[in-house]
Design a binder for these strands. Sequence first.
RNA 1: GGGCCCGUGGCUCAGCCUGGUUAGAGCGUGCGCCUGAUAAGCGCAAGGUCCGGGGUUCAAAUCCCCGCGGGCCCA
Length: 1030
Amino acid sequence: MFPSVYSPKDVEDEIRKFWDSHRIYEKVKKKGDRLFFFVDGPPYTTGRIHLGTAWNKVIKDTILRFKRMRGFRVMDTPGWDMHGLPIEVKVEQELGFKTKRDIESFGIDKFVAKCMEYALRNKDMMTEQFKALGVWMDWDNPYMTIKAEYIDSAWWCVKKAHEQGLLERKLRVVNWCPRCETALADAEVEYKDKEDPSIYVKFPIKGSENTFIVIWTTTPWTLPANMAVAVHPSLEYAKFRAEKDGKTEFLIMAKDLGSEVLRKGGYESWEVVETYSGKDLVGLEYEHPLIEEVPIQKNWTHRVYTADFVTAENTGCVHVAPGHGLEDFELGEKVGLEVFNPVDDRGIYTEKAGKYAGLQVFEANRIIIEDLRRKGLLLAEEKIVHRYGHCWRCKTPIIYRATEQWFLAVSKLKDRMLEEIDKVMWVPEWAGMARFKDWVSNAKDWCISRQRFWGIPIPVWICEKCGKWKVVGSVKEVPWKEDLDLHRPKIDEVTFDCECGGKMRRVKDVFDVWFDSGVASWGTLKFPFEMSRVEFERIWPADFITEGHDQTRGWFYSQLGASVIAFGRAPYKTVLMHGFTLDEKGRKMSKSLGNVVEPEEVVSRIGVDGFRLYVLSSALWEDLRFNWEDAKNVLRMLNIYWNAVRFAYTYMSLDRYKEIPLKDVQLSVEDRWILSRLESFNKLALEAMEKYHLHKVVRAFFDFVVEDFSRWYIQLVRPKVWEEKDSPAKIATYTTILRVVEKTAKIIAPFAPFLAEWIYQHFVKEFKEGEESIFLESYPEPEESLIDEELERAMSVTREIFEAASSARQKAKRKLRWPLRKLVIESKDEDVRRAVEMLEGIIKAQCNVKEVEVVEEFEKEVKVKPNYKAVGPKLKDKVKKFAEFVESLSKEEVKEILKRGKVEFEEVELNVDEALLIEYVVPEGYEFSEFSKGIVYVYTVLDEELKREAFAREIVRRIQEMRKEMDLDVEEFIESTVEIDPKLIEGWKEYVKHETRSVKLEFGEPKDGYVKEWEIEGMKVKIGIKRLER
RNA sequence: GGGCCCGUGGCUCAGCCUGGUUAGAGCGUGCGCCUGAUAAGCGCAAGGUCCGGGGUUCAAAUCCCCGCGGGCCCA
């Protein structure tokens, strides 16, 4: 059965059932000898999948299906990223929590159990969604980051780091989320616009009256922790004498920037009184501007230092707070500044902040500014909108805080990592060689500790007494019964006895969730928990991974870092980087914009195969602007493919065709042509697949199927399928079609698995033996001996001739149904001559002409007129005479002039191109149209004979339509009566009878049967037809 | 300030790596055609400074440089 309309849903339902009941996936998995190790970038288990996640998995599935058909045994374990802040935040929301204290009073054990429940629930939901997209992965055996065997992989890696001295605990300034009360990795910080104060502050210089050094900051809240001022060593600074409200002040700033600052400060006049280089300012002492408010500051001396990070912006003097800035911290370390951090985990000032104790830092900005103003130290205040870091999950603005954290010293491995990047195949190349290298070369040590609950616990125990560390490298070293035992708070109960007699307790922190996924390439293999080193080395590293470009700093990086620590090399051989999904205007999809398109919605409208082909139809590394029009168009094209196959099916099954080897049939020229095109397409597809250029395959598929197969080949062979049963030409056509359909189905199977399988089952296997499923077949190899480039070229010329002829017909208003006497092609091109030689029959039939001729030059008249616009300025008043001259030229003279390209007139030599407008006049009765290699002329005059034929065709068409209206079967016979003068179709009576399956054809007024009155070329014609009773 | 990517008809995109006919599709628009694939299908036409400017070259949408605009990432 072959339904007349392509219904993606019916096809999917049927094939899904077929795959399930015949356990096709399991059978496919067993095939293949060579190993293909794919590592799934684990999606994070919050909520439902979106368009981007769907796209991602569709890419993966397409590659994996392809590799399987290429004879690989594919490792297709899906992964789930189930720990971390995002889930904690969601669970907190469900429980209505605001702070970390809420979690602690609720009970960490209960909270963690909730997190696990949440993650598992989402995992199951998302699994179903992926399955619905036809994604074939080992859904029953995924890797999950919460499992003991996975945690084992992570711990093992930390131990590896420790053994190499790459695990460090140190005081560092880190990104800190005051809401989540934890450190964040650089990868977890999102930059968004934020409005902040932008203030210029005067720091009083000790020992000089009314003298200040001016700094600029957007974080007034860090001023209580100020320890120094930094200037650039070689920048030029100046002391300005400035007047304001009758008072004189001396202000130190960068020389070139001072005026602008003073203007902002509302000073009336100023002048430079002294200049220095930055170096000269070193050691200058100043008084902390909030010395009264933050009394503890009295303990320290504040000085000016030089630093290279200072730029010639704002005042050229930078306020340094080692407790609140990365560069500040480093400078402090170098010159021995106190790392003063009076801000607690919640972003609230501690007692050390004196007056500000108990205030939230961002709220304190206002108060600090007021204090400075009151004290006369605020030079100017503005607002600024700038990019500022926010917590990736809760969107709270982050703060920088110096805290004690655990680090992986990746900065020591940078060179190694960069070398490894070179060995990986990147698609596209710049993803690795440019983008990723840039990120890695800027990488700092990786802060892997989080002061949270739901994560892999850091496997470090420290002796309370002597401070000795124990880094545990395997979960087998601690007691556990279920996976939850390995999480907080259970794991915190585990202690070890130290050699010194003291108790070793676990560090309270959990891992950065990016570290979890970083160990995926061996975590997915359950190494070292279950897999032996020998086996592991046979499989690892991954042959292929693919993710979106956001993973440059995410998973591509975390995996490379972890793997270089553990094995000294990259964990992947090929990385395909894909884009983001955006709305049709190029904006991100978000709930607040209301522009979210759900994958399910797309699938319900155009089907899974349509969805897959749509998202795979443009370059993967570009962002995908989702567009309904284009998505629907994919469905339209699939429908054309469906209809073409169905057309063939109708006749092939009617004739009970069974496969005959290609060598045993008499192939026509069009058969040979489509087979050549097929193999060319096959070749292109295979080459593109090897390079992971999926979109090229999709495009070539539609091009071949729609353009070559449906629009051209099927059109050409249509008359043949109506021939008698054993016609050799028809059998050759069937054989050709079978091969075309089979190959195209296989080539596109990885992309559109449901449709391909359906066609394989209902078409291919109807006419030949085959495997149980198309996915148990091999991906087709191109048979290059069938490629005939000359023939392909000739056919493409032929199509152009046909198109030009159609165009000429339209100009002459001669519809295609009307035969024409003659078609002349004017061309000197060898390809055209060859095309006509090889394919004359096709040209005649398609263009509906009796005769085709190629000439080098068609007899046409050339008319020339003066080009007044160009000639006017040159000839001025002689123009009129020139026009007369041009008019007077004989045909021969014109030809001669055109040949020479120049025309002489009254001793002036003019260029033909600009002096003359050339017009070709086609002989009476001809119409023409250009194509790339020449011009096609059709003779449009209808002689009496052509008119009779045309009329006969008109009658045939009407009768056919009436047959259809009567719902007659294709092979049924009728009797027809036509009310016309028989002379109108003289010589064509048998033709009409044959075409319409009329046993009898009479002329006169129809009396009975189905009668209808038509208008043909302005003439009223009554036609009657009667079904022949048998 | 730095890195990367993108910029091609009204819209969505191919082509660019590897330079070479008149820059291609599809959608949309207009006009037609076909009618035994038909609740389909097909053709034709209009519509492009290939972001701008320089350079390399016999030849540049394509390679190089400098800008402009947009996006992502970093500082």
